[in-house]
Simulated assay, not measured.
Amino acid sequence: MGERVLVVGPAFHGYSESLATALRVLDHEVATHPYDLYATVGDKLRNKVRYELPERLGRPEGDRRRRQDLTVRAIAALRAARPDAVVVIRGDLLGADFWQTAEALKARTVLWLYDELRRMEHDPETLRRVDTLITYSPLDAESLRASGVETHCIANAFDDTYEIRPEPVESFLFVGARYPNRQRAVERLVAADVPVLAVGRDWSHHLFDRLRTWQLARPDVPARRDVSRSEAYNLMAGALGSLNIHTDQDGFTMRTFETGGAGGLQLIDRPDVSEFYDPGTEVAVFTSEEEMVELARRAVADRSWARKIGEAARRRTLAEHTFVRRARKLEQVWG
């Protein structure tokens, strides 16, 4: 039998649940705490009024209240679980009291970062005090090691416990947040008469999504509201292909491995994806919008080419890039 593990992390990405499932496969007893989950309508309304509205008005108390409340809830989960090890995903909203409580309970602490440090608000002391620090960012790992902080680099992954049921979609798919460079790329495909479907609250034309994102304007792009992770996988499997557009990240997004795991064609803007997949046979790499359009048009015209790449990507993903494989690496480094 393995150890008692508490996985603490954001609710939205599903990363925590996937890691917890993988650790259970490896025979650990695992509990989870999604620290920013607002499950009920009342919770969601409270989040808007207590936290987000003050921030929108330029007042700092919203962020301060959020951090205090989330820390208190996470400490309660920690005390209830009394784990041998606590694995915190991202965790920059948790205060020092949380880490002090973990130490008092003699739990080994692991902090796993799936974003670059410059986009988080971690106290440098926290990075030094945790027993095991993991990042998906090779550049952050190099920088942290240079400053004397032992750091391990582990990439994102695909959760292969989901059953894939392809949902036919005669469009190119983009699932994710609407950043300016992503919007430009999606609109470029639309302008080139390539069928596109953008998925997520930032793209949705539904009034509720406009209100909860505090953005009434939306690009003129076919869109769908948020979908579950399982539904996203099914869409990736059934679409003509999926766009994976990074911002200024040096780590690879979850979508890199999820699209391949679902067996879909992936158009990606990072030639260095060759660390994980073979460009041309397992993914399609573009370095300009013109190349992106050309590849998308080829996929529309040559379905067998797109299908062949997706099938090869799925084989590679299941062999090398599942959460269970990442969890085995975690076991090796957490001491």
Rank of each mutant, 00 (worst) to 15 (best):
S288H: 09
R64K: 13
P222V: 07
E17H: 08
R315D: 13
V169T: 11
T161V: 15
S242E: 08
M292W: 10
A81I: 01
L70W: 03
T21F: 10
Q249N: 15
Y114I: 13
G260P: 14
R108I: 04
W99A: 07
A301D: 14
V186S: 04
L211H: 01
A284T: 00
S230W: 10
D92A: 11
A11D: 15
D159E: 10
R182K: 11
T101D: 00
I164S: 02
E103H: 15
L94F: 11
A155D: 10
E311Q: 13
L211T: 00
V8R: 01
Y51C: 05
S143G: 07
V175R: 01
L144F: 06
A192M: 04
T161R: 13
F257V: 03
M292H: 06
V273K: 03
F172L: 14
T247H: 09
D131E: 09
L111G: 02
D27K: 00
R56H: 05
V169P: 00
I268R: 06
G148W: 07
K308P: 00
D131N: 14
A312W: 05
D63T: 13
Y114G: 08
L265F: 06
A155Q: 15
V49F: 10
M1T: 10
Q68V: 09
E275R: 15
I134Y: 01
R210T: 00
L57W: 08
D278N: 11
P10W: 06
V300S: 09
H321T: 10
L189C: 11
A74G: 01
L127R: 09
E282H: 00
W334T: 01
Q68M: 07
D269E: 11
P138V: 08
R66I: 05
E17P: 01
L197C: 11
N234F: 06
D226L: 13
I154M: 14
L19S: 03
V130L: 10
L117V: 14
D115N: 14
L173A: 10
D248Y: 09
